[in-house]
Design a protein around this nucleic acid. Structure first.
Length: 197
DNA sequence: TGTCCGATTGGT
DNA sequence: CCAATCGGACAG
């Protein structure tokens, strides 16, 4: 069943762990795509020097992170890739969870077409790849996860969770080494395996 | 207005 | 290891 907005009012770390094993769904004119979330990272708010809201920064780009939990925060990285985040917590708290990898479940041919590759383990094993496979672009900015275009479903599984350091946040001082990346143990669909703590 | 750089990816 | 590629953040 579709997760209600209440789910997203929890803090980012709680939601990041709870999202593992849930199913991300997008629906468009091209079709429906679904994937099991196997990797997430929590960005816990202004005190987190790795977050876009570090120091309470408020800009046109990160404005969605300050909205009430349950909406989408997407941004472009390196001028060419999109990253998908779920906003969490109360309005104004500036937290989000970056969804980094999926295990493709449905609409796999559509994902292959969008990505231009066939290997199922290479369809959504990274934040940019996942957005391409699911058809998520900047038009999803601020969109509600309670709507009919993108949402997350609970399929009743409780996977074993492994915590590790977040990827590519070397600029974040003491926050670089915090264990705020979460993966499903032994999943072959995660983005990078060499950084596991 | 100008400069710097990234919550990445894919090819050497 | 390294280039691609450009919007956004920030200094001036």
């Amino acid at each position: 069943m579709k997760l209600s907005l209440d789910f997203y009012k929890n803090d980012a770390e709680t939601v990041a762990k709870a999202l593992l094993g849930k199913v991300l769904v997008t629906k468009s004119g091209e079709g429906v795509t679904k994937g099991v979330i196997v990797e997430t990272e929590a960005y816990i708010g202004p005190e987190d020097l790795a977050a876009h809201t570090a120091g309470g920064r408020r800009t046109a780009r990160n404005e969605a992170m300050y909205r009430p939990g349950g909406c989408v925060y997407v941004y472009t990285i390196y001028g060419m890739h999109t990253c998908f985040n779920v906003v969490t917590g109360e309005e104004g708290s500036g937290q989000a969870v970056l969804v980094r990898a999926l295990e493709p479940l449905e609409g796999i041919e559509l994902m292959r077409k969008r990505r231009g590759v066939s290997d199922i383990k290479n369809l959504a094993s990274g934040p940019g790849k996942l957005c391409a496979a699911m058809g998520i672009d900047k038009s999803f900015y601020g969109e509600s996860l309670a709507g009919s275009r993108i949402w997350i479903e609970d399929i009743g599984t409780s996977p074993e969770i492994v915590a590790s350091k977040r990827i590519n946040v070397d600029y974040a001082g003491e926050w670089t080494d915090k264990l705020l990346r979460f993966t499903i143990k032994d999943s072959p669909f995660v983005s990078v395996r060499r950084f596991m703590v």
